[in-house]
C-alpha cells in the first residue's frame, strides 16, 4: 500500500525497526504516526479500499467465480473501552468512527461484519442506516422471561434444558428439573453464565445421597455468583432500579455512557428480545436493587 511521504519517512528513518512492535509498545512513536496520518484519513481509507478490492479480485480468481461474495469479519471493536478520565473521549471516538466516518467503513465489493459495542445503538439508534442501511444484529440471551416481565418463559427454560441434555443426557441424576430451571433463570439466559452456575454447584457434592441437587442446594452457587458482582455503589443501584422499572437503558446524559457501558459489559444489565429489545437488571441482583430502593426510598 502506498503511503504519504511523512509516514514513509518514519519507516525510512527507522530501518530494521519492527513498525508493528513499535506501534504497540512505543507510545511516542504511535502518537507521531497518528499525527502524521491525521489529515490524510481520506487518502488512507481510499488506499485501504483499493487494497481490499484487490484482495476480493484475488479471491474470486482463485475460486474461479467472478461473482463470488466475499465477507470480511472485523472483530473485537466492541472491546474498545476507555478508562478513568479518558473514558468519555474513547467512547466519543468510537461513536465518531461509526457515525462520522460511516462512509469510509463501507467498502466496495465486500460484505463486512463489524462487531460493535452494545452501547453504540443506545448512543445512536441510526447506526445501521448510516452504514449502507444495515441493521445492527444482537446476540441476545435465550428467552427465559416473558416480554418486559419477570415471569419465566417456560419454552425458553425447556430450550436450556435441551442444551444441557445434548451435552449430558443424564443431567436429571445431578439436578432436579426445578433446580436446573432455577439456575437458568438466575443466569438470565446467558449460556456461559448458565454453564458456570452448573459447574459451581458440583464441587460441593460430597455424597451421592445429595443428588439430584434441589433448588435449595444450588443457592450456594447463586450466592457465590451474586457476590462476584458486588459491591455496587448506591448511585448505580438507583439507576439500576430505573432500568428494572422501565426496562429501558435510561441514559439521561452523554457523560453517563461509561457507566452504562460498565453495566452492559459486566452483565449487571441484560438485553432481552421478545419481539422488541428490552432491558432488565441481572436476575441475581434484583433483590439487592429492590432492597436498596426500599431502604432509601429512592
Amino acid at each position: 500500500m502506498q503511503t504519504k511521504v511523512e509516514v514513509k519517512e518514519f519507516a525510512a528513518r527507522l530501518p530494521g525497526v519492527d513498525i508493528k512492535a513499535a506501534l504497540k509498545s512505543d507510545p511516542d512513536f504511535k502518537r507521531r504516526v497518528q499525527e502524521a496520518a491525521r489529515g490524510h484519513v481520506a487518502q488512507l481509507a481510499r488506499e485501504a479500499h483499493d487494497f481490499l478490492a484487490e484482495a476480493v479480485r484475488f479471491v474470486r480468481e482463485r475460486a474461479s467465480e467472478p461473482a463470488c461474495k466475499v465477507v470480511l469479519l472485523i472483530d473485537s471493536v466492541e472491546r474498545i473501552r476507555g478508562v478513568g478520565s479518558e473514558a468519555m473521549a474513547v467512547y466519543e471516538s468510537v461513536r465518531n468512527l461509526f457515525f462520522g466516518h460511516a462512509e469510509l467503513l463501507r467498502v466496495p465489493l465486500l460484505h463486512i461484519v463489524y462487531t460493535i459495542p452494545p452501547y453504540l445503538s443506545v448512543l445512536g439508534p441510526g447506526t445501521g442506516a448510516q452504514i449502507g442501511g444495515a441493521v445492527p444484529r444482537r446476540l441476545v440471551s435465550t428467552h427465559v422471561f416473558k416480554d418486559r416481565s419477570r415471569d419465566p418463559d417456560l419454552e425458553g427454560l425447556a430450550v436450556l434444558r435441551t442444551v444441557v441434555e445434548r451435552r449430558y443426557a443424564d443431567w436429571s441424576q445431578l439436578f432436579d428439573q426445578k433446580a436446573l430451571d432455577q439456575l437458568a433463570i438466575s443466569s438470565g439466559g446467558d449460556l456461559r453464565e448458565f454453564f458456570r452456575l452448573i459447574r459451581l454447584c458440583l464441587p460441593a457434592v460430597r455424597d451421592d445421597l445429595q443428588l439430584p441437587l434441589s433448588p435449595t442446594a444450588v443457592k450456594a452457587a447463586e450466592n457465590a455468583a451474586r457476590s462476584e458482582m458486588l459491591p455496587i455503589p448506591g448511585e448505580h443501584l438507583v439507576w439500576l432500579q430505573r432500568i428494572a422499572r422501565t426496562h429501558d437503558p435510561c441514559l439521561e446524559k452523554d457523560g453517563e455512557m461509561p457507566t452504562l457501558a460498565h453495566f452492559l459489559d459486566n452483565r449487571l444489565v441484560l438485553n432481552y428480545r421478545n419481539g422488541s429489545d428490552w432491558y432488565d437488571v441481572h436476575p441475581l441482583l434484583r433483590e439487592l436493587v429492590d432492597a436498596h430502593v426500599a431502604r432509601t426510598g429512592a
Binding site: R79, R196, R199, E228, H262, D265, N266
Partner: peptide
Amino acid sequence: RAMAPDIWHKRD
C-alpha cells in the same frame, strides 16, 4: 471486572 470484562466473563 472493570478493566477486563471480556476475560472476566470468560472465567470458569
